[in-house]
Write a protein that binds this DNA or RNA. Sequence first.
DNA 1: GTGGTCTAGACCACA
DNA 2: GTGGTCTAGACCACA
Lengths: 118, 118, 118, 118
Amino acid sequence: MIFKSEQSIYTQIMDYLKKEIFCGNYCAGQKLPPIRELAAQLAVNPNTIVRAYAELEKEGLLFTESTNGKFVTADIEFIKKIKIEYVTTQAEEFVEITEKCKLGKEEVMQIMEGIYGK
Amino acid sequence: MIFKSEQSIYTQIMDYLKKEIFCGNYCAGQKLPPIRELAAQLAVNPNTIVRAYAELEKEGLLFTESTNGKFVTADIEFIKKIKIEYVTTQAEEFVEITEKCKLGKEEVMQIMEGIYGK
Amino acid sequence: MIFKSEQSIYTQIMDYLKKEIFCGNYCAGQKLPPIRELAAQLAVNPNTIVRAYAELEKEGLLFTESTNGKFVTADIEFIKKIKIEYVTTQAEEFVEITEKCKLGKEEVMQIMEGIYGK
Amino acid sequence: MIFKSEQSIYTQIMDYLKKEIFCGNYCAGQKLPPIRELAAQLAVNPNTIVRAYAELEKEGLLFTESTNGKFVTADIEFIKKIKIEYVTTQAEEFVEITEKCKLGKEEVMQIMEGIYGK
DNA sequence: GTGGTCTAGACCACA
DNA sequence: GTGGTCTAGACCACA
């Protein structure tokens, strides 16, 4: 057994920003908060924001306008694609747990239905 | 936004043991490893195992035979119940993410089917 | 016949705190002494106080304000209920002794009256 | 707060023997088990039994027939008197707890009735 | 050998 | 300053 080490803050911030983009709080093409501003808001070091933005840019979700700041990509289809990938990964992790617990598809689907049925 | 601090070791060990019980690696009624043995195996202090075992005992998954060791409860129905509760919690967390991402039941179920279809 | 071994320190401290709460020395909603302070005062290890406080919290008599300390529950009715349970247990132990000694209700009640009549 | 030290074994044995006498398991005038026998039965050192017998003899509940062993006093009235004293002491300790908990005579008597009513 | 309790003391998060 | 977790290790009861 290996103990999970603490998830690094920049990946937590990446997750946070992704969700904000996926849910439309930050729309396609919209300007993101300046680094210093977001750093202050989340009470973290500005370098941490720099890294989170950079990683998201590598993934193609953000782009830089040199002196103007960081923006969400305008490509709605791309956002949609990444969102589905993200949710699929979450779903796979969940299914992995259910398989570890020896629950079959039917039982799991029943639990899912149960949640939506509430 | 609040950053998750590292999950404590004893709760990670609890989670690990629960999964082992849920999947049948530790069967109902079976003896668990002695405190000192598990501590050595996981390279943690015996007190940390004492705590993990104690918490699981409070939940009713374990019981103590005074000088004989710790055992998984023999109540299979109870284990099943706790397992379903555990998986349901995981499912709810997953659904919460999908809702944050503005995905409806149909889309989520399609993703689930996709995973099972592989 | 089994000889009672010494009662553990943390349970003695629990008993002590319960009585202080039951008699109103610590009122509903009142802050309890900080762990380290009570540990110093009772000349025990802080961990022992941690445990006593934790057990009382599980029973619902205490609650934690994260960085502010431990407090007696504000629920006066709950305190009253636990108090009656505690005294009833004491009464049952006493009655058990009288029955072992072959004393009936009348004789016991007479002894009780005798004490109150003093 | 002073932590109760463990009650000494000989006093626990005294209590045990008293109760056996009070309830008639050892009748007035009856021979008590030989020291070695009782020591073996209770898994304690014979000297501990010697001390318990000696203390009970001082109280007048036992007497020695030089080469014949220890006997319960034949004085039934005396046994009765000591029994009442013993139970009264227990009652006083119980009432002390109730007073510490700020319960009045009526509430305590109600609890007692509750136990007898079961 | 089994679990249970306790100490001394470190280090952490939160604010 | 507040509580929470953890380590290293002692000592205990039970059998």
